[in-house]
Amino acid sequence: MIRLAGVEKVYRTDRIETVALSQIDLEVAAGDFVAVMGPSGCGKSTLLNLIGLLDAPTRGSVELAGKPVASYRDRDVSRLRNETIGFVFQTFHLIPDLRVLDNVELPLLYRKMSAAERRARATRALERVGLASRLQHFPTQLSGGQQQRVAIARAIAGEPRILLADEPTGNLDSQMGDEVMGLIEDLNRKDGVTVVMVTHDPRQAEKAHRTIRIFDGRQVAC
């Protein structure tokens, strides 16, 4: 489902070059659940951004769903992201001016789809995360755990095959964190969604099928 070969990412500013990642080879099969761990600033998030096509590698190739990413033109990656990837962020990143339902509809806005169908799908996604009663609320009216569940609903509303989660429980207490993890596990198990999750928390990493460790931009062990 995901294959990275010889991937390297170098950030250049005027004077200095920072190597964020080097020589990453990674293969994630369909239905896999991978946790990525490592200390702060080791390059975990950069790896997730590369998989999520939010950033282009300096060297090497990224392959998604069996097809190599040939072009990083805005239009092409946008479509690919929209159709195959769902994101969950540590800080939720819900749009505060939109109601819960509108937030969840967001990925569907960029597809050719009727408003009724968008609504139906978003409602289904919210039912899935147990928030069917909160459609008309604004994000600020919800607890942190509920907000992250809305974010998960948004990530799955477009029925992506890959879910990328960047410390999804980082801002939550352990009980809420467990709820959210439960949802992610459920998605992986029942729907066969491939999950790549960056985390600091070994307890959550255990729930993945396997763990990748990154240290100073290099993959250290499987």
């Binding site: 939010l54 479509r79 159709e83 749009i95 967001l106 990925p107 806005l109 960029y110 477009g158």
Partner: peptide, 18 residues
């Protein structure tokens, strides 16, 4: 002020034109 909104929309596949 809504930079993160732009980021989220892009992550979920909003093309620049949109």
């Amino acid at each position: 002020e809504r930079a993160s909104e732009i980021g989220v929309r892009k992550a979920f596949g909003a093309p620049a034109t949109s």
